[in-house]
Lab assay of single mutants.
Amino acid sequence: YETDHQDYCEVCQQGGEIILCDTCPRAYHMVCLDPDMEKAPEGKWSCPHCEKE
């Protein structure tokens, strides 16, 4: 199925295993987040940009 999420990391602009924000189209590698994540979040997750809003 098609999503509106970007298929690359917002921080480093590379693809790969990325996690998707449930609020906006941004996507991130877990290691590119500050602080980085050990494992993928369970349930709904909002990226740092959305958390600030």
Rank of each mutant, 00 (worst) to 15 (best):
P25C: 12
S46T: 09
Q14N: 03
M30A: 10
W45F: 07
D36G: 09
M30P: 05
E17D: 08
M30I: 11
C50K: 04
T3E: 13
D22S: 05
T3H: 03
E17C: 04
E10R: 11
C32S: 00
Y8V: 08
G16N: 14
G16P: 03
T3S: 14
A27N: 07
A40I: 15
G15P: 08
D7S: 12
H49C: 15
I19K: 14
D4R: 10
H49P: 10
V31W: 05
D7L: 06
D4I: 09
I19Q: 08
D7K: 09
Y28A: 07
E10M: 02
C50F: 02
T23R: 03
C21V: 00
R26N: 03
Q6H: 03
C32I: 00
C24D: 02
R26P: 03
C12Y: 00
E38Y: 09
G43W: 07
M30L: 07
M37R: 12
G43A: 13
C50Y: 01
P35Y: 15
L20V: 11
E51K: 05
I19S: 07
E17A: 07
E42K: 12
D4N: 08
K44P: 13
P41R: 14
H29G: 01
P25T: 06
H49E: 05
W45E: 13
D36E: 14
E53C: 05
Y1K: 15
A27E: 01
H49S: 06
P41L: 09
E10P: 07
P48V: 10
Q13R: 13
C50W: 02
R26M: 14
S46V: 09
E2T: 15
V11Q: 05
E17V: 09
Q14D: 12
C9G: 01
K44A: 11
H5D: 01
W45L: 06
C50L: 02
G16A: 08
H29S: 02
Y28T: 04
G43P: 06
V11R: 14
A40K: 10
E10N: 07
R26E: 03
G43F: 03
V31Y: 13
I18W: 06
C21Q: 02
H29D: 04
P41V: 06
G15D: 14
Y8H: 15
C50H: 14
E42R: 11
E10Q: 03
K44M: 10
T3G: 14
D4V: 14
M37C: 15
P25I: 10
Y8A: 10
Q14F: 13
E53T: 01
L33V: 10
T23F: 09
Y1V: 15
C12P: 01
C9I: 00
V31R: 10
D34N: 09
D34P: 07
E38R: 10
C9F: 00
C32W: 00
G15S: 11
G16R: 11
H29Q: 01
E51R: 05
D22Y: 03
E53H: 03
Y8F: 15
Q6E: 04
Q13I: 06
M30E: 13
G15Q: 10
H29C: 12
Y28C: 02
H49K: 06
C47I: 00
C50S: 06
D7N: 06
P25Y: 08
I19P: 00
D34V: 09
K44Q: 15
E17L: 04
W45S: 13
D4W: 07
Q14T: 05
E2F: 15
C47E: 04
E42F: 04
M37S: 13
P35H: 11
E2H: 15
L33C: 12
I19R: 12
K39W: 07
E2I: 14
D22R: 05
P48Q: 08
C21Y: 01
P25L: 10
P35L: 06
C50P: 01
A40D: 12
V31N: 13
S46N: 12
E17S: 10
H49Y: 07
P41A: 14
K44L: 07
A40R: 07
E10A: 07
M37T: 04
K52L: 09
E51I: 04
W45C: 09
P48I: 04
I18S: 09
Y8Q: 15
G43R: 09
D7Y: 11
C12A: 00
Q14Y: 04
G15H: 01
M37F: 15
G43C: 06
E42Q: 11
Y1M: 15
Q6C: 06
K39H: 05
T3W: 07
A27D: 02
G43I: 03
D22H: 02
Q6G: 03
E2N: 15
Y8W: 08
M37I: 11
C32Q: 00
K52P: 09
P25W: 05
C24Y: 00
R26F: 04
L33W: 12
C24N: 03
C12L: 00
R26T: 06
H5G: 14
H49T: 07
P25S: 13
E17M: 07
I18C: 06
D34F: 04
P48M: 13
G43M: 07
E53N: 02
T3V: 13
R26S: 08
E51V: 06
D4F: 10
P48G: 09
E42P: 12
Q14G: 11
T23W: 04
K52R: 08
D36R: 10
Q6L: 05
M30W: 08
C12T: 03
R26D: 05
C9T: 01
E2D: 12
H5N: 14
G43N: 09
C47Q: 01
D22V: 10
Q13C: 10
I18N: 04
G15F: 07
C9M: 02
P41H: 03
K44I: 03
M30R: 05
G15M: 11
C47T: 03
E10G: 13
P25V: 05
M37P: 12
P35K: 03
